[in-house]
Amino acid sequence: MSAVLAVQNMTKFYGKVRALNDVSFSVPKGSVFGILGPNGSGKTTLLGIVMDILKPTKGNFLWNGQPGSNEQRKQIGTLLETPNFYHYLSGQKNLQIAAAIKGRGKEDIPKVLEKVNLFQRKDSKFSTYSLGMKQRLAIASTLLGNPDILVFDEPTNGLDPAGIAEIRQLMIDLNRQGKTVIMASHILDEVEKVCTHVAILQKGELKTVGTVDEVLSGTPGDRVSILEVELAADSIANLESVLKNLPGIVNIQSDNGTLNIQCEDSLTTSAINKYCFEKGIVLSQLNLKRKTLEKRFLEITGTKSEH
């Protein structure tokens, strides 16, 4: 798969503060690529650099194999950080300005306003919009000219639950149309539900990158991946004492009549079952728990917020 965006050795300092440190990754064409990280991890800085509003200290980037240019940005729909519009103009007039800068006609404007349910308020001043409406207008602006690449920074900010679901569905629909979506978010559930690929940033460092499944399973980059398995038997105490001697077990926790164990991925469920049976214990329950992105994220970044 060819790379829509290739970020190479990107480093950014704000004075003495290092916001990005030697970050490199590629965004495959046709993917929904999530850039995930706690507040202050460098997500917006990274997107700001590839959209030319911030200057990198070191490193470069390529859009479709070419150095970034304004002509390429015209072909990309971007919502960066907050909706940026002229407060004294109506939603429609703001979109006319965006369309004119992109070199597009006005014909797309009613269509994109309909898509984000803002058509009825098109003549209202931007300053009278609610936070959610402002966000919708920004998303409408990204859709002008039907671009093949979309960049969203925290796209569901300020939206109500129905709005969040609509925007997530919109992103999935856009991806089904063959468009590449790059999305920065600190909402793990959002990334897990929408994205095909994910890069995790922390304090400006790229911690991992790959498909969502790869990241969840611990590859690439990790030497040892940890699995979680839930077990039960007639005697939990006996089961626990037996499992303590099984090589590869990392942690055992008792939880309301079941045992939750963490073990190395070399240990399969069938191997656990066989071992217990050989030790005279018949398991009444054996579930391999699918790791959520949230757990994986916390494993990689730690549990504390950076702000």
Partner: peptide, 13 residues
């Protein structure tokens, strides 16, 4: 209004 950034994002040099 941060429109000086948005104009660049939208495709102005």
């Amino acid at each position: 209004f941060k429109t000086h950034r948005q104009n660049i994002i939208d495709g102005w040099k």
